[in-house]
C-alpha cells in the first residue's frame, strides 16, 4: 500500500515536471511561462526528495525557486515593456525540423540507456548532511573552492556586463 502511494507520487511529480516544461516552451504569456518554470523547478525538488536527497532538494528550492526564478522575473521586468494593460506576449517559430531533432534526441538517449534497466536497484536511504560536509570539505574541497571562485567571477562578470553605459 505504501509503495503504491510512493509510485503514485512519482507519477504526479513526473506529470508536474512535464506540464511545467511544456508550459515554459509553448506558453505565449510571459508570466504564465515564469509560473510554469516555477512549477517545473518545484517538481525537480520533489524528484530529489523521492531519491532520498533532502539536502539537494532544499538547495534546489532555495537557489532555483528562490534565486534563479526571481532573477528571471527581474529579467522579464527589465526586458519586456508592456503596452497599455496587455501583458507582453511571446512568440515561437514551430517547425517540424526542431521537433524531429527533439524527438531524435529523446529516442537516441533512451535507446542508449535502455540496457541499464537490468542493473537498476532500489533507491538507497539518505546519507545525511554530515557525509556531504565530510565529502565537500574533504575529497571534493578543490571542486568546492573552484565553485566558490566561479561564483565570484560570475558576480563580477554580471556587474561588468549589465552595469550600464555610464562607465
Amino acid at each position: 500500500m505504501n509503495d503504491t502511494i510512493v509510485q503514485i507520487m512519482w507519477w504526479v511529480l513526473a506529470a508536474g515536471a512535464l506540464a511545467g516544461a511544456v508550459t515554459v516552451v509553448f506558453s505565449r504569456d510571459v508570466l504564465r511561462m515564469a509560473l510554469g518554470l516555477g512549477g517545473f523547478l518545484v517538481a525537480l525538488a520533489g524528484f530529489y526528495m523521492y531519491y532520498a536527497l533532502p539536502f539537494l532538494a532544499t538547495v534546489q528550492v532555495f537557489v532555483y525557486v528562490g534565486g534563479v526564478l526571481v532573477l528571471i522575473l527581474f529579467g522579464i521586468m527589465l526586458v519586456h515593456r508592456s503596452e497599455g494593460d496587455a501583458r507582453p506576449g511571446l512568440s515561437s517559430r514551430h517547425d517540424p525540423g526542431s521537433a524531429a531533432v527533439a524527438v531524435g534526441i529523446l529516442a537516441l538517449v533512451t535507446s542508449m540507456l535502455w540496457p541499464l534497466r537490468d542493473v537498476m536497484t532500489e533507491r538507497p536511504a539518505s546519507a545525511g548532511t554530515k557525509a556531504i560536509a565530510d565529502l565537500l570539505l574533504g575529497d571534493l574541497l578543490p571542486h568546492f573552492e573552484a565553485a566558490g571562485a566561479l561564483l565570484l567571477i560570475a558576480l563580477v562578470a554580471v556587474i561588468v556586463i549589465a552595469g550600464g553605459d555610464d562607465r
Binding site: 512535464l18 516544461a21 511544456v22 515554459v24 516552451v25 510571459v30 511561462m33 528571471i72 529579467g75 522579464i76 526586458v79 519586456h80 511571446l90 512568440s91 515561437s92 517559430r93 514551430h94 517547425d95 526542431s98 521537433a99 531533432v101 527533439a102 534526441i105
Partner: peptide, 14 residues
C-alpha cells in the same frame, strides 16, 4: 522539450 524550446522560441528570456 527544453531543446525544442531553445530551437523554436524567439524571445531571449524564453
Amino acid at each position: 522539450v527544453g531543446l525544442y524550446g531553445v530551437l523554436t522560441r524567439r524571445d531571449l528570456i524564453a
